[in-house]
Design a protein around this nucleic acid. Sequence first.
DNA 1: AATGTTTGCTAACACGCGTTAGCATATTAT
DNA 2: ATAATATGCTAACGCGTGTTAGCAAACATT
Lengths: 197, 197
Amino acid sequence: MARIKTEKNISRKDVIVTKAAALFREKGFKAASMRDLAEAVGVEAASLYNHIKSKTELLHELCFGVANRFMHKIDEIEAEKGNDIEKVEKLLRFHINEMIHHYEEVYVSDREWKHLADPYLSNFQNQRRIYRKRFAAIIENGIRNKEIKNIDAPTAVLIILHAISGIESWHRSTQKISAEALEENMITILVGGLINR
Amino acid sequence: MARIKTEKNISRKDVIVTKAAALFREKGFKAASMRDLAEAVGVEAASLYNHIKSKTELLHELCFGVANRFMHKIDEIEAEKGNDIEKVEKLLRFHINEMIHHYEEVYVSDREWKHLADPYLSNFQNQRRIYRKRFAAIIENGIRNKEIKNIDAPTAVLIILHAISGIESWHRSTQKISAEALEENMITILVGGLINR
DNA sequence: AATGTTTGCTAACACGCGTTAGCATATTAT
DNA sequence: ATAATATGCTAACGCGTGTTAGCAAACATT
């Protein structure tokens, strides 16, 4: 009888959620079946339901897990003292590193949230909207005190966030530059594009 | 008996493909059903098959239609004489305008190509790879003659292309700045991030 | 008006999906 | 050792999917 292997402090549910992230990233939420997931986990499809409530629950876990991490980070950064352009850079570096080291979850949260069901869907969209406004507010502050070019802040946010999601291509490319080099290149181009000199 | 309305020079197939673009954009390729599409077109699902071969054919049409337009544009731009940074800017503006005015098709081509079946899938991936290499080559040229900062060209391409796909968010936002303002803001940030001064 | 073609409809198919029920086997606690 | 719990299996369900067959209505051509 097959059994889901776990290590200390990692529940079987965690194993499933992690495998789900990889699968949803690869095939998309709708195209990934519970039978696919079961195979990846090494178990029959029905057995998954001893640990999870539904397929959508997996998506909730992933989306809100990621969203919470970003929310906490922006709390932290807003509370800091310092230049606004530095705050933007810090947030940027956080995004980049999340995308590098928690690729699958972040990617899924970014691309597949549409398939959330409706109490969760609205909640997620709200969080997203608020997050972007707070991000834009930092940039607007930077514009006001001339650290940042006079640009439309929401547009800047949109460029930044989507540019970062391009790290997906880096993950899939065969000839990768190092993660550090990737981070510095992105900072050079994006901060360089914002900064006022 | 319902009938698909057509105007001059627009085949019924074209009508279906266009509606499919909107639907695939909204729900995703897998989640959009042929019955959904039929309803959007104003006809029964089975009737669609008088005009198209399969659901996947719709995806082919969309993906390769978009891919061809970009290929022709880069042909054109490569053939021109002039600064490399200007070429980059022209290509950028083309991308931006495609994303603004042919939103649904471009978006679908960008996000849903994974669901192509395999002779087409490989073909599409190849075209994509080649396109990005040619784009990177222009940037590398610009770096060599000091027009552009010394950055990793493939990373720059990845940032640019994904940043542009952020126009999706602009389309969905309620308080849109004008298309022209959007274009100029994006150019300011992205070209500003690349240029060497 | 008669003919051939295009377009649409209803009905149905085979298939894969998420999920549940009921039972068997491990693991853990007493 | 025994009881209780956690985990897995097989079988099956209802449902929505893409697609086809066969026939009817609309249109185009003569």
